[in-house]
Nucleic acid binder design. Structure first.
Lengths: 343, 343
DNA sequence: CTGTTAGCGCGTTCAT
DNA sequence: ATGAACGCGCTAACAG
């Protein structure tokens, strides 16, 4: 494997000259620059990452801490991982996956070994021990998903409150007067997950704003319970004409229940999704607000890269940098008005 | 940040002694070992990855080359990424994501920079330029998904032929006599994708073995075309009682079509899946053969780690190491027999 | 100004 | 159990 010395020899210059040519951190005469570039090309030289990192104390690597909730669908995390990797490359960074169940120990390993310059924490839970550990170590980090309990760390999130409010507002605007909002699952709410709480807030906001009858129904992680709650909500008379759903994991099950109740979508019941995954091919093209995965990924990478070289802390009393992404309805997915004019 | 010298000083020994204690590659007296360990603990020492890698020429990192087919659902790749990362950690490796669209250039970067010890290539296409480049560079690699066109590289795959044959056999065993097999999409077949061809072979095998009427219908990536093909197949008389599906991307759409045709699943039509993703919560618990993601991930990591330190080549004429994983029906998903006894 | 020399960063490993 | 060389690239100081 070629080293900088080989290149120098071939180009008839000193190793340092090669380095300067490559980094561009100093003016080098046209001739030697060309000679060096030629030698690099011919030898297929590539600087050794470890040597560069050792010297510069910069690995140009971002660690992505993926939560490992057993039984949780891993596809969503993976989608973010890929988009984050893409975004990172745009800043000259690579991404290593940290999937250890041993959260805090893994963070110590990352920080201690210098294998990465910053950490991106996905789907932060309340009281996230990893976030606390990183703060304590003064290691640069950024959060994907807001966390009220990890203060002082930069974060990115979809504005769930605005998203739910927007979905409901649009549903009302389409003419619906009796709407069911299926919120996050009860356990998510009691665990005080950011998206769950903010989503509820959005629903309340929309309810206050509008004269339409908006009924908030908490979802459930258990298909049976969810089915019961849904059937009950749909059985109300006069019947609701639209269903706005934030809890999407069990969506197929949900649609089955609706079909089993003899309702057609969207003729009998308009279904509107909040926070659905893009590119989730195979689903029907329901009207929806998609989770802006690419935008969130780009933003969180920007924050993480921006934190590199700092000690990750923010002057107390000041807001850490953050980005709350405004929701928007996916294009090409109009909400169907109710079939029979409502009261 | 603590270095090995700090630890040595605190323990009252030489740096090399600390190194030997940590690596265990040499016998060290009980006392000093304890002293060193204590110093490590107190200082929270962690060896600098870059220094270690520079000296030992081993990064203990696996590069995972993720294909970036625009518009393709990225969740599946992500699921593999996470499982591969888990498996790698079990071998003392970390995983860096390589999502560059520029395939070959990215492989050169990985090999040239020494940032990884081996590459895992996902979902290899025919004539994969990345695989060829790696072979040519003599860089260790392993393939996730068989590729007839990347000879000499270790690979792992589900035995798709056996999988489709098994699904059909079980469907027959449940009493079905008229079965439709919805194969991979036409474009996948003409692109000679391994899973598509082997799946077809399995269908032919089962057809030969059995006296049941098995009709092979190619799927399509376009929902309309798929719907037409399906409606036509289901309209045959006497009507088929079971549908075995390998092309799962449009499954929800498929089930919609079935429902629209007035058929209930599984009462009127048993639906059996081949190669579905595990943990894909929300889908109905249909009888199925799941893609053994975790098993495949573990196997491909083992192959990649095993190739580290070699030049990645296999004595010509010899088979590279590989693993063809036997399919099995997911537990708890019996295939429902046909309602009316078939002829 | 342009190019060279020398020392550094840190852990591993051989020879003493 | 230790001292010292080594892996490789970066960059401050220096020479031409």
């Amino acid at each position: 494997m070629a080293t900088i010395k080989d290149v120098a020899q071939r180009a008839g210059v000193a190793p340092s000259t090669v380095s300067y040519v490559l980094s561009g951190s100093r003016k080098i005469s046209e001739d030697t620059r060309i000679a060096v570039r030629a030698a690099v090309e011919e030898l297929g030289y590539h600087p050794r990452a470890s040597a560069r990192t050792l010297r510069s104390a910069r690995s140009h690597v971002l660690a992505l801490a993926v939560p490992r909730v057993p039984g949780k669908y891993r596809g969503t995390d993976g989608t973010f991982a890929i988009d984050i990797s893409d975004a990172a490359r745009g800043h000259g960074y690579d991404v290593v996956l940290i999937t250890d169940l041993a959260g805090v120990a893994a963070m110590r390993r990352v920080a201690g070994s210098g294998m990465a310059d910053a950490v991106v924490l996905m789907a932060v839970e309340e009281h996230d021990a990893r976030a606390a550990a990183l703060r304590e170590m003064g290691f640069p980090a950024a959060l994907l998903g807001r966390s009220e309990d990890a203060p002082g760390l930069p974060w990115v999130d979809l504005d769930w409150e605005a998203a739910v409010a927007l979905a409901l507002r649009e549903t009302v605007a389409a003419g619906h007067r009796r709407i069911v909002f299926l919120s996050s699952a009860e356990h998510e709410i009691s665990a005080r997950r950011g998206y769950a709480l903010h989503g509820l807030a959005g629903a309340r906001l929309a309810t206050r704003e509008s004269t339409a009858d908006i009924r908030i129904v908490p979802s459930s992680g258990e298909p049976e319970k969810l089915g019961r709650a849904l059937r009950e909500a749909l059985a109300a008379r006069p019947a609701p004409t639209a269903l706005v759903v934030q809890h999407l994991i069990l969506l197929p099950h949900l649609l089955d229940e609706i079909a089993a109740a003899g309702l057609r979508v969207p003729e009998d019941l308009a279904v509107v999704l909040v926070g659905s995954f893009p590119d989730d091919v195979g689903g029907r093209p329901l009207p929806r607000i998609e989770l802006p995965v690419t935008e969130m990924s780009a933003a969180v990478v920007r924050l993480a890269v921006g934190a590199v070289g700092t000690d990750g802390s923010v002057p107390s009393g000041e807001q850490p940098p953050h980005r709350l992404i405004a929701p928007r309805m996916a294009t090409g997915s109009a909400i169907r008005p109710p079939s029979e004019p409502s009261s």
